[in-house]
Every structure is written in C-alpha cells, then in structure tokens.
Amino acid sequence: MAILEVNNVKKVYTTRFGGNQVQALADVSFSVEKGEYVAIMGESGSGKTTLLNILAALDKATSGLVLLNGKNLSTLRDSEVSAFRRENLGFVFQDFNLLDNFNIQDNIFLPLVLAGKNYNEMRVRLMPIAENLGIKQILGKYPYEVSGGQKQRAAVARALITNPQLILADEPTGALDSKASESLLSQFQEINGAGQTILMVTHSTKAASRAKRVLFIKDGQVFHQLYKGSSTDEEMYQKISDTLTVITTGGGRHE
C-alpha cells in the first residue's frame, strides 16, 4: 500500500513586497510504497526543498493533495501538526540540526521526551539503534565534540527512535566527507532493508544511486523517474548521470 501519496501539488510563493508570484512547484504527483527507498533529485531551485517542507507539514501546498498513511496533511489543525510530525515522520537534515545544549543521547531522546515517554523506555529503544549506528561510545558527548559523520548518525538515530512511518532526509550527505557519506548511505540501505521507508532529497548522484527509485524534478514538475530494479550501484550511478545530462542539456520531456 502507498504510505505517501502526492497528487497534483502546486506551490506558489508571493513575495512580501510588490506581490510578484513565484511558482516553486507546478504540478507534482507521485506515491511512495511502504518499505521503499526513494531519492528525489534536482538542481538548486528546482523545488526539492519546497516539496520536502510540504511533505513535512512545515509548509502548506497552494493546491493539491498530500496523503500520509491516508491522512490529508492540509486538513491537520495547527495544534495537531506537531504531534503528527513527531509520531509519523523522522527527519535527517544536511546541517544535522542537533541542539548544542544537549548531549548526543539527549538529542536523540528529544522527540520521545516531547511525546512524554519515560526514561527506561527511551533507554530500551535507544540501545539497539545506537548499536547499529555505532554511536554507543559518544552518547555522553556534546555535538561540538564529535565529527560531522557522528553528528549525522546521531541525527539518524533521532529520526529512527520514534519508529516513524517515513524518514525524510534533506541532503543528508551534503556536509559530510566522502568516507562519512559512504558509511551513512550504507546505513540508510541497512535501515531500509529492515523495512523502514525513506524519502531522500539530494543532488548527489552517488547518494541517489543507492536508492531503489529516483525521481527527477525540474521546474517544479516530476520530470522523470528511474527504478533501480536489479542493477548494481554502479549501473544505477551511470543511469542517473545520463538522465542528468539529458536534463541539463535541455532535452525535451520523454517517458
């Protein structure tokens, strides 16, 4: 079944002065099945981040429909949005977004504490996740004391600990060196292998090549999509590169 359905979503920003209208998303439709690992690619300004914000219920679509687990995001009341986000979504950001006044463990606990869970339950949930991500040793440290890769793994742990329906990742490898990127992507694949649905926005071909499906966005529309199927990472990398070449050289729409 589809966990996420996006139907004809359109987003128009009105600039604060002068009333100029900027169309960020023209008409986006796609769906994500349970257990999928989808990457969304596009150049800067293609509308990726806008899309992600709408999926995260941080922003509202001008028109169209976003259904998460059958729930229409635009009908959520303001008071429900935060709890909904907390219970159904996990976030991984490019710049980690860890709070510098909490140590790593408390950063990971944050969504659970907000949900009112008790300490013992939090510990029980944390241990296997920390084990898998290899961050058990640094739980007591503060964000400024650990490396970027470790920070990002902490952020992944924070996203996972609520057992979300869907993980939304926004350029997760954007601030990492190649080695850290590589290990993070492997971890994403592992997590996905365990049944976790992931939606990742990126413009790194390498990151996208690890996903099971890649959507390309251009000028606010889904331009193309690729299924990995049984291809290897390298083959997928090649396919994505070819598609990107077509897009940047301005090839017409084909499918």
Binding site: A56, L58, S79, S82, F93, N97, L110, P111, L114
Partner: peptide, 15 residues
C-alpha cells in the same frame, strides 16, 4: 536556531 530545530523535531510553535 534552536527555535527552528525544535519545531522541525516535532514541538509545536506554541510549546
């Protein structure tokens, strides 16, 4: 900055 992060993680603006 903290304001923004907390909201992304699932705290309502009011909270």
């Amino acid at each position: 900055g903290r304001f923004e992060i907390m909201q992304k993680v699932g705290m309502s603006p009011r909270e």
